[in-house]
């Protein structure tokens, strides 16, 4: 049934994607290394001792006018970022091609196991990043996103690889593409959101070199960017939860069984709901809120690894 040649092409596309994204990562690293701190021009050098960060959650800080973009960033660095940007699109396209070829190879929707989730999740993370780049300057973020994706693809194609094949009857439903695609898309968004939240927390603390953090947007801007990603991811995850429940009823007879996978989908949802609450609560600092967002992402990682491999439930086929 399965078309081995197509599956082979899917793997070639995946390997090319990994290679392309690795090169993109190196270019982004080069860009960041050479970039001139964005905010240097905007700030008086004399007060270099004062961390460039405005306290989280405090009154809206005086953001530097956005016109002071680092005009002095060397041409070489800008070129590197340009190349990296094109490679990111190419990498995303190759991941999509790999995904599609795999789908043709197995003659079903290719989101039936952890390996396939990872490829799709990597695609969505790259796509979310690239699309975000259409609306704002996110070159500073490239190295972090590509590094995560490269790591994910490495683990997926070694530890989690499974041969292309059909799925068990309970997975044969039009709910599979709906439920899992949206789940994976929101995971892609949460990946980028978690990276930005982590950068915010480190920038806010001034971890490591101060000069480095000045190459990135200001901490409060990072925080807002992270929020704007999370408020897209959260409704999508809510949809995932609802679609999963509808499907569970059709496949197993009850819309909610407290199956480990369901429990974790719910836990992730609740933690992100807590993040949105924390962010809206005046007395809770933005830092706390972002730690909760990171905790939410940790739950996603647990959901896709520990829960898939160690907890026995009706979802165990996802191995």
């Amino acid at each position: 049934m399965t078309n081995e040649i197509l599956a082979q092409y899917a793997n070639y596309a995946l390997a090319s994607a990994a290679l392309v994204i690795t090169v993109a990562m190196l270019c982004y690293a080069l860009y960041l290394a050479q970039a001139v701190p964005v905010r240097e021009a905007a700030e008086v050098r004399a007060d270099a001792k004062v961390p460039a960060t405005v306290g989280a959650g405090e009154a809206k800080g005086e953001d530097p006018p956005s016109s002071v973009v680092a005009a002095e960033t060397p041409l070489k660095a800008r070129k590197a970022a340009g190349i990296a940007g094109s490679l990111s699109w190419l990498g995303a396209a190759l991941l999509l091609a790999s995904f599609a070829l795999r789908g043709f190879a197995v003659e079903r929707f290719p989101l039936g196991n952890l390996f396939e989730f990872s490829v799709a999740g990597a695609f969505f993370a790259m796509a979310v990043y690239s699309v975000a780049g259409l609306r704002r300057d996110v070159r500073w973020l490239g190295v972090f996103v590509t590094a995560f994706v490269v790591l994910l693809l490495m683990v997926a194609s070694t530890a989690w690889y499974v041969e292309a094949d059909e799925v068990v009857p309970s997975l044969k439903s039009y709910w599979l593409p709906i439920h899992v695609t949206v789940a994976t898309l929101s995971v892609g968004i949460f990946v980028v959101g978690a990276i930005v939240s982590a950068l915010y927390l480190m920038s806010d603390r001034g971890v490591g070199s101060e000069r480095f953090w000045r190459k990135l947007p200001e901490a409060s801007a990072l925080e807002k960017f992270s929020y704007s990603l999370h408020i897209i991811g959260f409704p999508l995850w809510t949809f995932t939860l609802i679609a999963g429940a509808i499907w569970a009823r059709e496949a197993w007879g009850a819309y909610w069984n407290w199956d480990p996978k369901e429990v974790w989908t719910f836990v992730i949802w609740t933690v992100y709901a807590a993040y949105l609450h924390a962010r809206a609560t005046k007395n809770t600092s933005r830092r706390t809120a972002n730690w909760i967002a990171i905790a939410g992402f940790a739950c996603i990682v647990i959901n896709y690894t520990v829960v898939n491999f160690y907890f026995i439930g009706q979802h165990s086929y996802a191995q």
Binding site: W258, V263, T281
Partner: peptide, 30 residues
């Protein structure tokens, strides 16, 4: 709001053991 936040986090944590230990209502034999 702060209590709501606390309870939400507590709910998330409270739900976890049910995925770690076998549940009687789902699989009594296990």
């Amino acid at each position: 709001m702060r209590t709501a936040l606390f309870l939400l986090l507590l709910l998330a944590i409270g739900a976890v053991p049910g995925s770690v230990f076998p549940q009687r209502s789902i699989d009594p034999a296990q």
